[in-house]
Design a binder for these strands. Structure first.
Length: 650
RNA sequence: GCGCUCGUAGCUCAGCUGGAUAGAGUGUUUGGCUACGAACCAAAAGGUCGCAGGUUCGAAUCCUGCCGAGCGCGCCA
């Protein structure tokens, strides 16, 4: 039982007794908000509910609060020592910290790795809800850059969060192996005559991609060849198509390696070429043709096309020509059309399926599967209740069209469960751009620069990993010269993963990340390595204590003295995890977990300074050891959600 | 032109459905390792929350307008 939930319920009950008029009709019960007081002298938790009620009840909020507090004081609330009132009308609760410590430490000890998620699972398990999360989705024609990294990190953490609260989660990585991006590599090989060198293949293609695009700019007639190649690839039968497929497959291997190093794994790869060859769209069209929203235009700008009617939909009000073409007048399908068919497959309403075969094993122990044209297993994937597409904000319009179209075409429920998990871009700060040499002299200086694959402007994901890894390894070597080089490097990589993943996940979704090398390499303060250090320190205390025969107690026994502030704050932070996780899952907000983990770690650091453990008198030491053990578990669980390795030393 | 997002400390960002004295990190200055690891902690300085109105007991938060920034808006892919 969470302390906040207990207080919330008590407040509800108290309101009901003090102001019965609020509860007629019964469902009009007011929402009870709880917040941390701005100053600890007020209490441990406060509710401004009376301030809000002041308007509806047309009464002085302070008097309302006093009446409510009086009612609340009649019955003891578990975990609460005192209720009081402060102007302008807050009701404040002071915890019974011994009771709270008992509850929280026991709960963490009981639930272990499940602490934080178990309460949530109790709420959600009965639903049996399957969520498909699609992320990464990098064009298979060049190395991944830091923009792709944000996508993959967010998608992966989202999957971890939703799994933790009890959903069945399936992670898919969609490979667009038939687009112009891959075609450009084929054309590049043909026209530029490059030979592969010792560079990794995705790096080689990174340069080839920019080279061929420079060539297009010089000789626009080459675009004709690009189109021919593209058609061949879409047909999927000749030598060219085979070559393109091979390029895409090799690049995908590179991408998977890049992501695996960061602890990011998938359940299924789906290939655009399979979607084309299995005729997903044709299948979708046949089942949609009865819909009144899908029409063959007889006149107007879209004459001769099949369009989905969106002009009457409020989301597209005010647009000049909101109707969306699905089939061109030449009979071919547009991108949105294919997207609709694919989304229908994800929901299991297409009536057509891929076959599936194992693609390989992954370091997390799970098998990675891939779609195949034939001969594999069937029915194992898709069929989701909810689909989350992790795609940057630039795709918002198309994702809106996709979702609304699904609804217009008769799939309201699926439309309501289609989520575009949109996040802002990663751009280069002026300094980063300068370091990469992308600022030309003539250009007037800007304070940020967009990455551009065609121009080769961007920071490659693996370059960043190597850079941070190198720095972290140097630090480890400096601090732990006794370790073998191999061990130093292993720790260095885990620290680099922490730094990078934290950097990619700590920002809100709609915050544009201005990538800066100094900031991404930062390992102090609000950073991933700080979290790891806060874990290692706790481990060290427990280990040190054990070597002296001291262990966390099975039954919490309190020392004579009252708990000090650093213990209280730490305890409250530990207690907050279940609630924070539920919030992060409900709002699909990974940064909530990052913020929480930092707060938790910081409160431990303060505790560490103020409250010695192993050197304290035995009764105090035993209690603090229990607290440290509970904290370490809570932090480890948070780090697990963030995909950050919890280290015992660094 | 229309739509979405953003503007908070020198810099990078938090600030929850309106609530108490607007918070972190970083940078600057200062103090703390014979200690459970200093990848740490403590302290100081640093703010007209873009500007102007409005709504109300109360606005960084909601509404309107303006200024500035970014991104979208094809039978393209």
């Amino acid at each position: 039982m969470l302390i906040t939930e207990t207080i919330r319920q008590a407040l509800q009950l108290g309101l009901q007794h003090a102001f019965p008029q609020l509860f007629t009709p019964a469902e009009s019960a007011p929402d009870v908000a709880l917040e941390e007081p701005s100053h600890p002298s007020f209490g441990d938790l406060s509710s401004p509910v009376c301030l809000k009620l002041a308007r509806t009840l047309r009464a002085n909020p302070l008097q309302l609060a006093q009446k409510l507090a009086e009612t609340l004081s009649r019955e003891p609330i578990p975990g609460v020592a005192e209720v009081n009132v402060t102007p302008p009308g807050y009701v404040n609760f002071r915890f019974d910290y011994e009771g709270l410590a008992q509850l929280v430490i026991n709960q963490v000890g009981r639930e272990g790795d499940l602490y934080g998620s178990r309460d949530a699972i109790n709420y959600t398990l009965f639903i049996f809800f399957k969520v498909v999360i699609e992320h990464t989705n990098i064009n298979p024609n060049k190395a991944a850059h830091i923009g792709h990294l944000r996508n993959a990190c967010l998608g992966d953490t989202l999957a971890r969060i939703l799994t933790a609260v009890g959903y069945e989660v399936e992670v898919q990585n969609y490979i667009d192996d038939t687009g112009t991006a891959v075609a450009d590599i084929v054309v590049g090989y043909e026209l530029l005559g490059w030979q592969e060198d010792e560079r990794s293949f995705d790096y080689f293609c990174w340069d080839l991609y920019t080279a061929i695009n420079e060539e297009y700019a010089k000789k626009p007639e080459l675009k004709k060849r690009q189109l021919e190649v593209l058609h061949s690839i879409e047909e999927g039968i000749d030598e060219i198509a085979l070559q393109a497929k091979k390029i895409a497959e090799r690049i995908v291997v590179c991408h998977l390696k890049t992501m695996a190093r960061l602890g990011i794994f998938y359940n299924l790869l789906t290939w655009e070429s399979h979607i084309l060859q299995l005729g997903f769209w044709k299948h979708a069209l046949s089942s949609l043709q009865g819909s009144t929203s899908l029409v063959l235009e007889q006149d107007g700008p879209n004459v001769g096309c099949w369009v989905v009617r969106l002009k009457d939909h409020p989301e597209f009000a005010g647009m000049e020509n909101p109707d969306k073409v699905l089939v061109r007048s030449n009979g071919t399908a547009t991108y949105v059309a294919k997207d609709i068919a694919y989304q229908m497959w994800k929901f299991g309403i297409l009536g057509k399926d891929f076959s599936y075969a194992p693609y390989g094993s992954q370091e997390n122990g799970a098998t990675l599967w891939t779609s195949v044209l034939q001969g594999g297993e069937t029915g194992a994937f898709g069929g989701a209740n909810k689909v989350i597409n992790v795609i940057d904000i630039r795709q918002k319009y198309l994702q809106d069209v996709l979702r609304v179209s699904l609804g217009q075409l008769g799939y309201q429920e699926q439309a309501a469960n289609s989520v575009h998990f949109a996040y802002e871009l990663v751009v280069l700060s002026a300094e980063a751009a300068k370091e990469l040499g992308v600022v030309s002299d003539e250009e007037e200086e800007k304070d940020m620069y967009a990455m551009a694959g065609r121009k080769g402007i961007g920071v490659k994901a693996d370059d960043l990993v190597e850079l941070v890894w190198q720095k972290a390894t140097q630090e480890v070597a400096r601090r732990s010269p006794g370790l073998s080089t191999l061990e130093q490097e292993k720790l260095g990589l885990q620290i680099a993963v922490a730094a990078i993943r934290y950097y990619m996940q700590r920002y809100n979704m709609n915050t544009l990340i201005r990538f800066d090398f100094a900031e991404a390499l930062n390992m102090q303060g609000n950073s991933g390595p700080y979290l790891q250090y806060a874990h290692a320190r706790a481990h060290n205390i427990l280990e040190r204590a054990a070597s002296r025969g001291l262990y966390p107690a099975k039954e919490i026994v309190f020392p004579e003295e009252k708990l000090n502030d650093s213990e209280k704050v730490l305890l409250r932070r530990i207690a907050a995890l279940p609630e924070v996780l539920l919030k992060a899952a409900g709002e699909l907000a990974p940064s909530t977990i990052a913020e929480y983990a930092y707060q938790l770690a910081a409160s431990f650091m303060a505790f560490y300074e103020a409250s010695p453990v192993t050197t304290a008198p035995p009764a105090v030491a035993t209690f603090r050891l229990s607290l440290v053990a509970a904290y370490k578990q809570a932090l480890a669980n948070s780090l697990q959600l963030l995909g950050i390795p919890a280290l015992n030393r660094m």
